[in-house]
Every structure is written in structure tokens, then in C-alpha cells.
Amino acid sequence: MPLKKQDMVYIRQARAALEENFDKNITIPQLARQVGINEAKLKEGFRELYDQSIHNYLQQLRLEKAKQLLLTTDMSVTDITYEIGYSHVTHFTTLFKKELGMPPTEWRKQNKE
């Protein structure tokens, strides 16, 4: 079923809200309420518009911010973990390694020259 124009507006607002609040623990039900669309339509429409789930999009935002912080600051991996919205360092480092092929400290060494 094609998305209505108004649904696309809501979904774009949801994406903007994610970009502004990526470091917060935002749930899909909260996000749906915030922009005024039902959860199912938000999830389906987001995937249709952006070719990925809300969860994957948020994860990519957080990883990009982590990479930026690793390159531009001397913050510890623990501090970066909390700064980007994760509450468990092991979860973040596992995810980082899975996505980028090495742990954050090693990635920083190789890319911060």
C-alpha cells in the first residue's frame, strides 16, 4: 500500500527526531506518538522510505557519532558509549567490532593519524 503524503511527513519528522535524540533511549511507541502516526505505519513506512528499519538507522547514527568522537576527542570508549546512548560498554564494543571489523580502540589508532 503506497504511503500517503501526510504519512511521509510524519515519517520524515520521526527521522529528524531520531537524529536529534539518537543519544536518548527513545522507543518506537514514543516516537510514533511524538509525530502522530501509528507504530505499524511508522515502521513500515520508515523501511519503505529509507530501506532500513528504525532500529538499524538509529544504530548507524550512533556508530557514526562514535567514529566522529573517536577521531576528534580523547574521550574514553566508556564515555563515548554513554555519550551516544548505549548503557553497556560490552554491547557497544561488540556492535562496533561487528560493523567495523575491529574494536573501537584499535579503530581509533588506525584512523586518527
Rank of each mutant, 00 (worst) to 15 (best):
T81G: 06
K67R: 15
L49M: 05
K98P: 03
D74H: 13
S87D: 09
S53I: 07
L61A: 06
G101P: 08
F96P: 01
K98F: 15
H55L: 14
M75P: 05
Y57L: 06
E64H: 14
L71R: 10
T90C: 12
I80F: 01
S87R: 11
G101V: 06
L95K: 00
A66N: 08
Y57T: 08
H55N: 11
R62W: 03
T72F: 01
Y82D: 08
T73G: 00
H88M: 10
L95F: 04
H91E: 10
L58T: 01
R62M: 02
I80S: 03
Q68N: 12
G101A: 04
A66K: 05
E83C: 04
Q60M: 12
M75A: 08
H88Q: 11
T93D: 12
K97I: 10
Q52N: 04
S53M: 02
Y86E: 02
H91L: 12
T73Q: 04
L58F: 01
M75K: 10
N56M: 10
T81S: 07
L69N: 00
L95N: 02
T94R: 12
L71E: 07
K97D: 14
K97H: 15
E106A: 14
K98L: 13
Q59V: 10
E83M: 00
F96A: 05
T81M: 07
M102Q: 14
T105H: 12
L61P: 04
Q52I: 01
D51T: 11
D51L: 11
E99F: 08
M102P: 07
Q59E: 14
L61W: 01
E83G: 03
L69C: 06
Y57W: 08
Q52A: 03
T90S: 15
L70S: 03
L95C: 03
H91M: 10
E64K: 14
D51K: 15
L69S: 00
Y57C: 03
R62S: 01
L61K: 04
A66C: 06
L95S: 07
L61V: 02
I84R: 01
D79K: 07
D51Y: 13
V89L: 09
L95T: 09
L61I: 06
V89S: 03
L63I: 09
D74P: 08
L69D: 02
T93S: 13
T105G: 07
I54A: 02
V77P: 06
Y57N: 05
R62K: 01
L95M: 07
Y86M: 00
Y82K: 13
D74G: 11
H88L: 09
Q60S: 10
Y57Q: 05
F92Q: 04
E106H: 13
H55F: 06
Q59A: 11
T72M: 04
T73N: 02
Q68W: 05
V77N: 13
